[in-house]
């Protein structure tokens, strides 16, 4: 198991290095001049030349790449051309909102997906009344769902808010739900939940179908397997057969799909954040692209890439834990 973990960590590190190389090239070829971002447009040519030298921009590219990695490791991702602040500081402000939204949506996707799979495989009566609407909703693009959700729940029913996180989170974690619990503030918690519900549900629907369908087909084949027949022949109760023999052996494909979907959710969050004015990196990214703010774009890319790689490495580890044949 330790060998497997080391190998998996090793390959994740290689992937991150490749990713930083891509991001570095993106920055190096970007039209903006980081020096002007530091000094402002009115700086003298001499000052600019000195600053270039100081920033190492006259060094050969490989040396610059090395410095870029060293800086990234120290938490320095350069200056944003648009906000004129360090990209790291921007990410620190905007990332928690996105992580909170995606995390809640991901948990929802897992729950809905599992419900979809189990209700189908075990032929729960009435399960079709859940799976049908979910399938229909998943065919609509997220922005349409978001607009429809706002019209229905905000404009018509007036039960949910339409924009923002409900609070200006200044707490220690940056997550509204966690900060409000830490601060013992019930009103803030309720407001946080109310603001989260609609975007999170909309973000979770398409991934829940992907996860649910994969999980259902692997549940079906596990239920038909010889060892499940053996478990039944032992006279075990159906719930024990399900819990101890069926679920664990069916998790593999579902876990893979969940890892992939988590990555897609971070990418797809841009649209949902725009519609709901969610103060996260999706919105930050959307503002950075028109102004060609490459340091900011590169920073967001790097962070999302790392999250994606870590999530999938985690999935591999979970799969190895679920199936001893993978690390024999």
């Amino acid at each position: 198991m330790t060998r497997f973990l080391l190998r998996r960590t090793g390959s994740a590190v290689v992937l991150v290095l490749v990713l930083t190389a891509v991001v570095f090239v993106l920055q190096a070829v970007s039209p903006g001049d980081p020096v002007k971002a530091y000094l402002g447009n009115n700086a003298s040519p001499a000052a600019i030349a000195a600053q270039r030298q100081a920033l190492g921009l006259n060094d050969p590219l490989p040396v610059q790449y090395f410095h870029y990695i060293v800086h990234a490791l120290q938490g320095n991702l350069g200056m944003s051309l648009r906000t004129r602040r360090p990209v790291m500081a921007d990410l620190h402000d905007f990332l928690p909102a996105t992580v909170e939204l995606v995390a809640v949506a991901f948990v929802l996707a897992l729950l809905l997906g599992s419900l979809y799979a189990v209700s189908g495989s075990l032929r729960w009566p009435g399960g079709a009344f859940f799976r049908g609407p979910l399938l229909v909703l998943a065919t609509a693009p997220p922005f349409l769902l978001a607009l429809g959700g706002i019209i229905l729940f905000y404009a018509q029913l007036q039960v949910l808010p339409a924009a923002g996180r409900g609070v200006d989170s200044t707490g220690p974690s940056g997550f509204v739900l966690i900060d409000s619990i830490l601060g013992g503030d019930a009103t803030e918690f309720v407001a946080g939940v109310q603001h989260l519900v609609l975007p999170a549900v909309i973000l979770s629907i398409a991934p829940s179908i992907s996860i649910g369908r994969i999980l259902r087909s692997s549940l079906d084949s596990t239920l038909a397997s010889d060892y499940v027949r053996t478990a039944r022949s032992k006279g075990l109760r159906p719930i024990v057969v399900l819990g101890k023999h069926v679920v664990r052996n069916s998790l593999g494909p579902g876990l893979s799909m969940a890892g992939l979907q988590l990555g897609f959710m971070f990418a797809g969050v841009v649209v949902v954040e725009q519609v709901f004015s969610w103060p996260g990196i999706g919105n930050y990214l959307a503002a950075s692209i028109p102004t060609s703010d490459f340091p900011a774009i590169a920073g967001v890319t790097l962070v999302l890439g790392i999250i994606y790689i870590v999530a999938n490495a985690l999935v591999d580890v979970l799969q190895a834990l679920a199936d001893p044949r993978l690390n024999a």
């Binding site: 060892y227 478990a231 664990r248």
Partner: peptide, 14 residues
């Protein structure tokens, strides 16, 4: 009960 194929008749992850 003893089934035909002992490889598939035993739970591989237990």
């Amino acid at each position: 009960v003893i089934f035909q194929d002992p490889m598939t008749s035993l739970n591989p992850t237990m």
